[in-house]
């Protein structure tokens, strides 16, 4: 069982390492993640939201739909923990 798990881990890790060959290099300014949408956020973020911290600007304005349901997710997690653990007094 343990050897099977170790074998699966090594095979998966080798496949993932083989896959990283196509990834952009470390700190490459021309990588796809840095050239697609984030230049718009960096260029227009401050003038459109007046928030110098771009992380906050993207979190609260451009991607606030994501953040809203994120808040709902942690709210649901809290409610689930209460309802799973709390014993009704009998």
């Amino acid at each position: 069982m343990k050897t099977l798990a170790l074998l699966a881990t090594i095979v998966t890790g080798a496949l993932l390492l083989y896959g990283t060959r196509d990834f952009p290099d470390w700190a490459d300014p021309q990588s796809p993640t840095s050239t697609h949408v984030s230049p718009y956020y960096i260029e227009h973020g401050v003038e459109e939201t007046h928030a110098p911290n771009l992380v906050t600007a993207v979190l609260g304005d451009y991607r606030s739909y994501d953040t809203m349901f994120e808040t709902v997710v942690i709210y649901c997690a809290g409610m689930v923990v209460v309802s799973v653990l709390r014993r009704t007094r009998s």
């Binding site: 993640t33 949408v37 956020y41 771009l54 992380v55 600007a57 994501d66 994120e70 997710v73 649901c76």
Partner: peptide, 27 residues
């Protein structure tokens, strides 16, 4: 300026991981 988008996405992912850990510990 560094790319802010992965930071934002991972900020939410960290909180999701905390929630997942909490629910898993309760179970």
């Amino acid at each position: 300026v560094a790319n802010p988008l992965p930071h934002v996405l991972m900020l939410t992912a960290i909180v999701v991981s905390v929630s997942v850990t909490g629910v898993a510990l309760a179970i």
